[in-house]
Amino acid sequence: MVELNGPRLEPLSGQARQLVVFLHGYGADGNDLIEIGRAWQPLMPDAAFVSPHAPRPCGQAPMGREWFPLTFRDLNERWTGVNAAAPVLNAFLDAELQRHNLPGSALALVGFSQGTMMSLHVGLRRAEAPAAIVGYSGMLVTPESDAEMERFAADIRARPPVLLVHGDSDDLIPVQALFHAAQGLAALDVPVEFHISAGIGHGIDQEGLRQGGEFLARRFNRRATP
């Protein structure tokens, strides 16, 4: 199995009590999101941040990486893709938690685009629920067939609070994907909040960053309170 790696930020406090893992989008790499961790450090001084490079070279952007290939010729390719990439990501998450001697409940996943697809897919299937998931400009990947949809719902093991953030001018993954994801998560009894960034395309604005950082800080503080 491929071993993931990427840039890291150690906690400002010197002692990791939480772990925030950034999952980048298609054609980028771990360097694309790690600076968000630097911006969020004052909100979460006890958090370690890591942004692994996805396991595959990107077919459409050879200098970048992908969690799974996208050809847009197969309706089920996203579902096939998230399932294929999940084991290597789970192994990385387990190793990082162990490295910091943290329980699975101290984990937060933050995804962008294809990274949001991975965050939701893996985060809802962890044996121990993460503290939170933040998904930017992404979608909840579901299978095409009704038979597989039954298995999809049965496979959900964790229901961490989720924040979805999306630009209303996104022409790559339209904002309707946020509403579909929020509806799908609510149907699975996953607590979900969302924020729509006005005039923003396939990207993250300052308000979206603020909302994401404050959401995680609140969730971590709740976990820390007896």
Rank of each mutant, 00 (worst) to 15 (best):
E3W: 04
E3R: 14
P7A: 07
R8L: 08
R8M: 13
Q15F: 03
V21R: 01
V21Q: 07
D29Y: 05
N31Q: 13
D32K: 11
D32F: 03
I34G: 08
E35M: 11
I36A: 13
I36S: 07
A39P: 00
W40P: 02
L43C: 09
M44H: 04
A48T: 03
V50S: 10
S51L: 07
S51I: 09
S51R: 07
S51Q: 06
S51T: 09
P52D: 02
H53M: 03
H53V: 05
P57H: 02
R65C: 12
W67V: 06
P69Y: 09
P69N: 06
L70G: 05
F72A: 12
F72R: 15
D74L: 10
L75Q: 14
R78V: 04
R78I: 03
T80V: 14
G81Q: 08
N83Y: 00
A85R: 09
A85Y: 06
P87G: 09
V88H: 11
N90L: 07
F92H: 10
F92Y: 15
D94E: 13
A95G: 03
Q98G: 08
R99Q: 09
H100K: 01
H100T: 01
L102C: 11
P103K: 10
G104I: 00
S105T: 10
G111M: 12
F112C: 11
S113W: 10
Q114W: 11
G115T: 08
G115W: 09
T116P: 09
M117P: 07
H121S: 10
H121Y: 15
G123K: 02
L124Y: 04
A127F: 00
E128T: 09
E128P: 01
A129E: 01
P130H: 00
P130T: 00
I133G: 01
G135T: 03
G135V: 09
S137L: 10
L140R: 08
P143W: 06
P143R: 03
E144P: 00
M149Q: 15
E150R: 13
A153C: 07
A153P: 00
A154H: 02
A154L: 05
R157Q: 14
L164R: 08
V165Y: 06
H166I: 05
D168S: 07
S169N: 14
S169W: 06
D170F: 13
L172S: 14
V175H: 14
Q176F: 09
A177W: 03
L178Y: 03
F179M: 12
F179R: 13
A182K: 13
Q183A: 15
V190Y: 04
P191V: 11
E193Y: 00
F194E: 07
I196A: 04
G199V: 06
G199N: 04
G199E: 08
G203I: 05
I204S: 09
D205G: 15
E207N: 13
G208K: 11
R210F: 09
E214T: 12
F215E: 06
L216V: 05
A217Y: 07
R218P: 01
N221M: 11
N221S: 15
R223F: 03
R223Q: 12
A224R: 04
A224G: 02
